[in-house]
């Protein structure tokens, strides 16, 4: 555990931070996660799929627990369950509309069942309370070399596919009808993006946990979209914010022993709030 505290000497602080292997792993995985979450998150907000992200991450909880139960990496369980849920969402309905009465009741029922199932799995392998908190609120401990490798592979595949479909996806997200008319395969794209989203959620959960996914996957992108309408800049900003929240959050968690999820959600929340306040004041002065 950290003996000397942080100082104003940034270089010494960074050396202190990275002196243990688990922190190196946490920073490596965190960086990959932030890169992916910032990019995928931009499309999530643009397409109004923040609720789907929330849902996928909650389905991830039993996935991670099942991974531990059958002695494979929790990340693998997360990936299997999240991708499965994404296929399910795609099969059931094209849009998961939170506004529909019975549909939201159905989703609520599925989520409660899924979280209950996760709890059951944890109990079945005799997991500790700390283990449950790690799944739900994220952890900086216990990210193994295997997890980092898996995260790297997933991030590589996902960012590459996002780059490949980025242009038509942007078109299809902003104006689906025109895109359809121009021959863009809108349905295929939305399925592809749902799968990308599932993979992104699966690896993001490692850092912030099942319950706090909004902080990394949605809040940075939402702030970026408030700040700029230009797409390239927006994505860059979203990635930069994700990285900043993750790195700062990890560092603060290391030095204070408080869960990383608290810092990342607080940073994301405060920044989003500030952006919204600035925006509101500006629109009050000059209504857009």
């Amino acid at each position: 555990m950290p003996e000397p505290g942080p100082s104003w000497d940034v270089v010494a602080d960074i050396q202190l931070l990275l002196q243990f292997h688990f922190m190196q792993n946490a920073f490596l995985a965190g960086t990959l996660v932030a890169l992916l979450a910032g990019t995928a998150g931009y499309f999530v907000v643009l397409r109004g799929q923040s609720f789907a992200a929330h849902m996928l991450s909650q389905v991830g909880f039993p996935g991670a627990a099942a991974g531990v139960l059958v002695h494979v990496s929790p990340v693998l369980g997360l990936i299997v369950f999240c991708v499965g849920a994404a296929v399910g969402i795609a099969a059931i309905g094209r849009e998961v509309d939170a506004g529909q009465r019975l549909e939201s009741a159905a989703i609520g029922s599925i989520l409660a069942f899924s979280l209950g199932l996760g709890f059951l799995f944890v109990r079945l392998y005799g997991g500790s309370a700390q283990g449950i908190y790690a799944f739900l609120f994220g952890t900086i401990l216990g990210i193994t070399d295997r997890d980092v490798q898996l995260t790297f592979a997933v991030a590589l595949v996902t960012i590459a596919s996002l780059a490949a479909i980025g242009r038509p996806l942007m078109f299809a997200s902003v104006d689906p009808d025109v895109a359809q008319a121009r021959g863009v395969p809108v349905r295929m794209l939305s399925l592809a993006f749902l799968l990308i989203l599932a993979l992104s959620v699966a690896i993001t959960v490692q850092i912030v946990g099942t319950l706090l996914i909004f902080a990394l996957l949605v809040a940075p992108a939402a702030s970026a979209l408030q700040l700029t309408a230009r797409q390239g800049r927006g994505i860059a900003l979203s990635v930069a914010l994700s990285l900043a929240f993750t790195w700062l959050g990890l560092a603060l968690a290391y030095f204070t022993n408080v869960p990383v999820g608290f810092f990342i959600t607080t940073l994301a929340f405060v920044f989003y709030l500030a952006v919204r306040l600035v925006k509101t004041r500006r629109t009050v002065v000059a209504p857009a």
Binding site: L211, L212, P259
Partner: peptide, 8 residues
Amino acid sequence: AWVLGVGA
């Protein structure tokens, strides 16, 4: 998400 973070 922040409320839950505070809970954590």
